[in-house]
Design a protein around this nucleic acid. Sequence first.
DNA 1: TTACTTGATGTGGTTGGACCACACGCCTAG
DNA 2: CTAGGCGTGTGGTCCAACCACATCAAGTAA
Lengths: 229, 229
Amino acid sequence: MRTHQLVLQWIEGQLSSGQLALGGRLPAERSLAEQLQVSRTSVREAIRVLEAMGVLRAGVGSGPEAGTVVIADPTAALGSALRLHVATSHLPVKDVVETRVLLESWAASRARPESPSLAEAARLLEEMDGCADTEEFLALDVRFHLALADAAGNAVVSAMMGSLREAIQEYAGRLTGNLPDWDATATRLRAEHRGILAAITDHDGSRAAQLVAEHIEGYYAEAGLGSGA
Amino acid sequence: MRTHQLVLQWIEGQLSSGQLALGGRLPAERSLAEQLQVSRTSVREAIRVLEAMGVLRAGVGSGPEAGTVVIADPTAALGSALRLHVATSHLPVKDVVETRVLLESWAASRARPESPSLAEAARLLEEMDGCADTEEFLALDVRFHLALADAAGNAVVSAMMGSLREAIQEYAGRLTGNLPDWDATATRLRAEHRGILAAITDHDGSRAAQLVAEHIEGYYAEAGLGSGA
DNA sequence: TTACTTGATGTGGTTGGACCACACGCCTAG
DNA sequence: CTAGGCGTGTGGTCCAACCACATCAAGTAA
């Protein structure tokens, strides 16, 4: 057992037992090192790992915003992990897209029409109508899909969805360059978005799932998944 | 930009560009520190993060087994991340189970009957028949479900499946204590496993998916998900 | 010649100490 | 009462050293 893992275990124990909760502050690095009888280096290595996992956030300076506090950002952890393994070609982009279709279809079929996330999604659609910039459009698109996922009310699915999107974001961005006519594509995407939202509002979960699957697969097909990169 | 993140970027770049591939060896920590003009501490922090992500493995000593080498264990990264966030009560166990049902059902419906993973799954079932120990049975059960997931041929789904299982493994272990009659449950599980496998072999994906969903939900319902913990 | 011992070498693991930049909050001078 | 400076505590970074471990090569004894 390496030293920093001992620190990891201690912190995880504090989290499990509830003695360290969301928003709580970890003891200062020097203090924690002394308390656990290890070097500050080992404490820092453990904190670094938890930071990468989206569990902690380190802040310099003094005052309420400073110090190392407990956060909850599961998407960050899953996202960077997936991105790294995609980088090693161990996780094919094809599988990532396929999984995204699976999760998003499920979320669409389960989305509750009265969810506040859907109102947010509708608002994002309005914003996308008056948006000429490609990059800004894509950023709004990401938020729209995340809002749809949130509407299903499953935090794990939402986190995984977001992480999948993050993992292939750079890849997807390159794909848009393959598109023959961006304006036409954007118009089509807007229409498809509205169709999905309407299906959910109509309590037609299976139609919504079907539309989402076609929406995602259609985009990657048009942009040339498999032919490029 | 913090120093260790610079190291992270450098390594990720090496991975993306293919100059560092699976099984490849990272330069020695001291050497890499000098090369990137940073301290060994920062290099170590970056390596620690990638180790937690299942991308690297550090080995002491000398020779071919030593040094820091590139591995590919996405399940480890996703698993510990999920486990930590479950520990902070940010990801409800209910959502984890629900997601597991979703992924496993999909995998069962897509499993290719001729996949070698299915042969492995069948072998595991044989082993479970002659297994009286509860803990050993559960370990084999995990491997059985992972083999089923592998048979669908989607690495991302397999990794997520395994990580979900890992994240609630301790929780599930505690649940078995709630069971009124373990022997009866084990017998039922064995029968259900065979049913699932048969459905896949018969090319009946939808029946396999249905059986898997009932199999998982039934277990957690019997063990008292929601009533306990 | 063969087999064993022994040391050199190189790896990550750990430690302590030092210094920096930063941000807050008190405390003093105006 | 206000405005500025400075003390204090935080994480961020670096360095130099030492340890444990595993291998490999040279040397030695059989």
